[in-house]
């Protein structure tokens, strides 16, 4: 793997709440290589979004990031607003889940695109307009001149997400963080949006972090996949390894939960028993142990560190002989 664009080192995210401090992300470390697509999967609340919002300096007011998120030699987790503002939208861009509410309703979409160029490239409006229209065309929006003058409510969800992508690509970023970019969209539109992101990655060499809870999305896009549970990475590895030889019971559970069209035997729905843990009262030891079908005594006592698997990946599990791992519970 070539040099990395983003290095997270022991990154934690904590929120001050009336009930006390909660750690949404705990000492998470990973890196994203240049031009790589890293998928991040995990159940709702596992800390996927907060990890990368912390890297963008976009945590809610009651949140704070501890640790490092190194991007271009700068620790984003500790950078001031000015430093962040020079990078955000420029070298580092983010696409959000909900295209219906992620664009400013009272501004023409064109203006929302050009302001990125005016901000980071010092362009005057006419030049910025030309570039924005070219970018709209690039993300396959028909009649870009007309759409440029429209307000967000005049566009469909799919078109708005294309606008969001155009906005992210405007300055040719080194890294795009896409937080569930297709979750709110129709299935047919989803594929088109993913295709656009894939093309950006291939044509512009942009690294992509693709956050999703849909393993299907990750399978077609990612080079590597990180699986998150309760604010930690529990498994990280090449995409084919994660899918073909998962090393963590949770990963295996997630895979079993994903209905597969090509698998004739998977006629019943499989679920992981139990609920994701309450961050306020994490279980002792491994946070997954109450739901794990292979729980051992030591899992209750201590949390397993991330250790290397045979195939070059990482897993946070004490189990050694993985063939016998229970995936989940079959719901008849």
């Amino acid at each position: 793997m070539s040099a990395s664009v983003l290095d997270l080192k022991n990154l934690s995210v904590r929120f001050a709440t009336p009930e006390g401090e909660v750690a949404a992300v705990s000492e998470l470390s990973l890196s994203v290589g240049k031009g790589e697509c890293l998928g991040i999967v995990g159940e709702s609340g596992s800390g996927k979004s907060q990890t990368f919002l912390a890297a963008m300096g976009l945590l809610a007011r009651n949140g704070r990031a501890v640790g490092e998120a190194i991007f271009g030699g700068i620790n984003l987790a500790a950078a001031d607003e000015n430093t962040l503002n020079r990078l955000r939208g420029n070298k580092l861009a983010m696409i959000f889940q909900d295209p219906m509410t992620s664009l400013t309703p009272h501004m023409k979409v064109g203006h929302q695109l050009t302001e990125v160029l005016v901000r980071h490239r010092n362009l005057k409006f006419p030049a910025a307009r030309d570039r924005a229209i070219a970018m709209l065309r690039r993300v396959q929006i028909s009649e870009p001149e007309r759409r440029f003058e429209m307000y967000p409510h005049e566009l469909s969800g799919g078109l708005r997400q294309r606008v969001m992508i155009a906005m992210a690509l405007m300055c040719g970023p080194e890294l795009i963080i896409a937080d569930e970019p297709t979750t709110a969209l129709d299935v047919t539109v989803q594929a088109q949006i993913l295709d656009l992101i894939r093309r950006a990655k291939e044509e512009l060499g942009t690294a992509v972090i693709l956050i999703t809870h849909d393993l299907g999305v990750v399978a077609g896009m990612a080079d590597r996949v990180g699986v998150m549970y309760a604010g930690r990475i529990v498994e990280l590895g090449e995409v084919h390894q994660i899918f073909n030889a998962p090393q963590h019971p949770y990963t295996k559970g997630l895979l079993a939960c994903t209905p597969r069209l090509d698998d004739a035997t998977a006629s019943a729905l499989v679920t992981i028993p139990g609920q994701p843990p309450d961050l306020q009262q994490l279980p002792t030891g491994c946070a997954y142990h109450p739901r794990c079908g292979n729980v051992m005594e030591r899992c209750r006592a201590a949390a397993p560190p991330l250790m290397s698997t045979g195939g070059g990946g990482l897993k946070a599990c004490f189990l050694e002989n993985f063939g016998s791992v229970q995936a989940g519970t079959v719901v008849p």
């Binding site: 976009l58 503002n85 955000r88 939208g89 861009a93 959000f96 664009l103 901000r119 969001m164 906005m167």
Partner: peptide, 8 residues
């Protein structure tokens, strides 16, 4: 959040 993510 989008506007802030643009670096404005």
């Amino acid at each position: 959040r989008t506007a802030r993510a643009k670096g404005l």
